[in-house]
Design a protein around this nucleic acid. Structure first.
Lengths: 222, 222
DNA sequence: AATTGGCTAATACCTTCGTGTTATCTCCGA
DNA sequence: TCGGAGATAACACGAAGGTATTAGCCAATT
């Protein structure tokens, strides 16, 4: 245990790891990239800068909350098309779009695709900061929800097939006797599998098991 | 019981009530209103036409799925401000916006506020029909979810205070013994309230009660 | 060949749940 | 003042849940 003084020192001098966030800037205009870089660093956000979509895709991204600031007009790939591809690439970062020559249909398309904001150039610094702040908060929420779901999935993966079947039927409200009938088992065997499922999932009550089963099904439908 | 022939006649000649939907047109341009009216009626949608926001607010609206087609530039109230007020007025109809002189910030604001689409004039008939179709489907989903929640709320309203307390604690996974301790009751009394809650809510298993309790809490947070 | 893990099942024991019966007390409206 | 609804509670019985012990079977791995 270090002294309270040193602990407070650390808090004052740097963000705790939970506060870190990265803005990925994708724009072919190097001057604008540098300006954005300064802007974001001035509010203690980390930045990564890319001149083309390909560079961004190929780069390593740390496992931290963040967002993408993306120019619509880019060499090679179009910004809107890239936005649409992000999901397929397994990238779930929120997107803030900027454009020099945008029109309304383009804006509508971007917003329908889930963009956090769509800023025509020139934009005010504060508008950009607001958009990025919203985007990062959205990513934090998504990551938090995903972490919960991941924990559930990990525990569910340790269940045997029988245990999964019994768990789902139990979570649907079936009695042990009914489960035994539907699966062609004895009631005792069902109790064993049910108990194992509760233990492996970390559920202490049926109510918890019901909520876990619902969360797993929701995660799958998504 | 009428004859099968007459029943089928009715099906062929009109939409079943479940298919009905209404488009509320709010625009001060009477020529455009008439054109939209013809367009929507050509695809068997019902229409109501208003030249000003005030007319729409004062009008009676049947309890059917529908959407609003709203011009941004209107005499009196601004279309975007009206869109923002809809929630406060208890109107949850999806909005399709049209505009003659729109810009990007206006579009972003409208889409952030939940507009289904934002169409600059002149627009193609098919784009308008697509937007309205999406909007009405969204309203159908919302109404279906709301009907379910309303049924739950009605049943929950018939519970006494004690029954509600016991239901919530039971749905959280507490045993009757624990509930009795927390509420300062005997276990027998808890069983009576719990049984009454299950019966009044129409829940046949604890799993159903858990899901009902969750749905009620989600509905409240919303 | 031996071991491990998964699936099955019976027996036994205790806990918890659900319900019916009976009963007392309070409050409120007819 | 009577009747009804709500809340409380004890007693009793049967249904259901949970766990421990023991044990047989099978497939895969060591």
């Amino acid at each position: 245990m270090v002294s309270p003084f040193l602990e407070n020192m650390a808090l004052w001098m740097s963000h705790s790891p939970d506060d870190r966030a990265i803005v990925y800037i994708v724009d072919d205009d190097e001057a604008l990239r540098r300006a954005l870089d300064r802007l974001f660093r001035s509010v203690s956000l980390e930045t990564r800068s890319y001149g083309a979509v390909r560079e961004f895709i190929g780069a390593q991204r740390p496992d931290l909350p963040g967002c993408i600031v993306l120019d619509v007009r880019l060499p090679g790939t179009n910004g809107l098309e890239f936005q649409a591809q992000l999901g397929d690439l397994g990238i779930n970062l929120p997107v803030v779009l900027i454009t020099g020559h945008g029109d309304i249909p383009m804006t509508v398309r971007a917003m329908k695709a889930g963009a956090v904001d769509f800023l025509p150039k020139p934009f005010r610094d504060q508008d950009m900061l607001d958009a990025v702040s919203t985007a990062i908060n959205r990513d934090r929420s998504r990551r938090a929800a995903e972490d919960l779901a991941a924990g559930l999935k990990d525990r569910f993966a340790t269940l045997s097939m029988r245990e999964r079947e019994v768990m789902m039927l139990a979570a649907s409200g079936r009695m042990n006797k009914q489960i035994a009938g539907e699966l062609g088992l004895s009631e005792v065997t069902v109790k064993i599998h049910r108990g194992a499922a509760m233990r492996k999932m970390g559920a202490r009550t049926l109510a918890e098991l019901v909520r876990m089963a619902d969360a797993l099904n929701l995660a799958r439908e998504h």
